[in-house]
Computed example of a mutant assay.
Amino acid sequence: MMSRFRKLSSNSFLVRSAQRLCLVVLPAMGLSCWSMAAPVPTLKPISALMTQVMARAVAVDVLISQVQQRLRDPHPLELELVTVGGLGPIRLGMSIQEAANAAQVSFVAAPLTQSEECKYYLPEGYDKQNAVRTVAIDGIGLMVVNDQIIRIDIWPDSPVKTRSELGIGATIEQLKTAYEGQLETTPHPYTDGNYLTLTPDASGSNLYSLVFETDKNGIVSQFRTGQLPAVTWTEGCS
C-alpha cells in the first residue's frame, strides 16, 4: 500500500510540475502549451492514459517547432535593409527572375494570391547543411503586377528593418524622430491605427514611397515600400 501511495504522490508531483511549466514558465518565454491544468485521476483505463500521452506528445512537437523557428538562421533577405527603392539588391521594377538572380534566392507564389494580374511571391528558405529548399519565409512579400515588382511588404514578426534601423515594433515617436517632418499621418480604414507615409519631398520621388502601418497603441505592425499608388493599397492584391 505504501509503495502504491508513493507512486500516486510522484504522479501528482509530475502533473503539478508540468502545469507550472505550461502555465508560468513557457508563457514567460512567449511560447504556448496545451493546457495541462486539469487534474489527472489516479486510476484510468489504459486507453485513456494513452490518449493523454499522445496529446502531450503532440504538444511537445508543437513546442519544438516553435523553438526551432525562433532559433533558425535568418534568411539572407532578412538581413537586408528596406529603402524607398527596394529591399537590399532587389529593386522595384525588377521581374521575379531578376530579383532572384540579384539576391541569389528563389521565390514561390503565395498560396493566397488573388489573381493572375496581381501576385505575391515569398522567398524560399534554404537548408545549407542538407542543401535543400525549405518552407517559404512568410515575413516578406513581393507584389508583382505585369511581371514587375511594384511593392515589397514586410509583415508582422519579420526582423527586416529600414535604413534608419526601424521595423516591426517601432513606435510612432521613433518614426517621427527618424523622419522629422517627412511623414504624413492618415487613419487606417479598418482599425484604430494609422498610416505614416513618407512624403514625396522626403522620398525624392513622386513614383515611390514608404508606408508604415501602426496599431491602436502606435506600434508599427507592418510596413512596405513600393510604387504609387500600389504602396497605399490597404488590401494588397485583393
Score class of each variant (00 low, 15 high):
residue 1 M to I: 07
residue 3 S to Y: 13
residue 5 F to P: 06
residue 5 F to K: 10
residue 8 L to K: 07
residue 9 S to G: 10
residue 10 S to Y: 15
residue 12 S to F: 14
residue 12 S to Q: 12
residue 12 S to M: 13
residue 12 S to W: 15
residue 15 V to L: 14
residue 16 R to F: 13
residue 19 Q to H: 09
residue 24 V to N: 04
residue 25 V to N: 11
residue 32 S to L: 00
residue 33 C to P: 06
residue 33 C to E: 00
residue 33 C to D: 13
residue 34 W to Q: 12
residue 37 A to N: 04
residue 37 A to I: 07
residue 41 P to C: 11
residue 47 S to A: 15
residue 48 A to E: 06
residue 51 T to M: 14
residue 52 Q to L: 12
residue 54 M to A: 15
residue 57 A to W: 05
residue 57 A to Y: 08
residue 57 A to Q: 12
residue 59 A to K: 05
residue 60 V to C: 15
residue 60 V to A: 12
residue 60 V to N: 10
residue 64 I to D: 12
residue 69 Q to S: 05
residue 71 L to I: 12
residue 71 L to D: 03
residue 72 R to P: 02
residue 74 P to T: 10
residue 77 L to I: 00
residue 78 E to I: 02
residue 81 L to A: 08
residue 82 V to A: 01
residue 85 G to F: 00
residue 86 G to A: 10
residue 90 I to K: 05
residue 93 G to S: 12
residue 94 M to R: 05
residue 95 S to Q: 11
residue 99 A to M: 02
residue 101 N to G: 10
residue 101 N to D: 10
residue 102 A to V: 08
residue 102 A to M: 09
residue 103 A to C: 06
residue 103 A to R: 05
residue 103 A to F: 05
residue 106 S to Y: 03
residue 107 F to E: 05
residue 110 A to E: 11
residue 111 P to K: 09
residue 111 P to D: 02
residue 112 L to E: 10
residue 113 T to H: 08
residue 115 S to L: 03
residue 120 Y to D: 02
residue 121 Y to L: 11
residue 122 L to K: 03
residue 123 P to W: 02
residue 123 P to I: 01
residue 127 D to N: 08
residue 127 D to T: 04
residue 128 K to M: 14
residue 131 A to W: 13
residue 132 V to L: 08
residue 133 R to D: 05
residue 133 R to F: 15
residue 139 G to L: 08
residue 143 M to A: 15
residue 144 V to K: 05
residue 144 V to R: 04
residue 145 V to Q: 10
residue 147 D to Q: 08
residue 149 I to Y: 05
residue 149 I to L: 15
residue 149 I to N: 04
residue 149 I to A: 03
residue 150 I to H: 07
residue 151 R to T: 15
residue 151 R to K: 15
residue 153 D to G: 01
residue 154 I to Q: 00
residue 155 W to P: 01
residue 161 K to A: 10
residue 161 K to F: 08
residue 166 L to A: 10
residue 169 G to P: 09
residue 169 G to W: 13
residue 172 I to N: 00
residue 176 K to F: 04
residue 177 T to N: 08
residue 180 E to R: 01
residue 183 L to R: 05
residue 188 H to R: 12
residue 189 P to E: 03
residue 189 P to A: 01
residue 192 D to V: 05
residue 192 D to Q: 14
residue 192 D to H: 10
residue 193 G to Q: 04
residue 194 N to F: 06
residue 196 L to R: 00
residue 197 T to A: 03
residue 197 T to D: 02
residue 204 G to V: 08
residue 204 G to W: 09
residue 210 L to S: 01
residue 211 V to M: 00
residue 211 V to Y: 00
residue 212 F to P: 15
residue 215 D to P: 07
residue 219 I to T: 14
residue 220 V to R: 04
residue 223 F to I: 02
residue 224 R to Y: 02
residue 224 R to L: 07
residue 228 L to P: 06
residue 233 W to V: 10
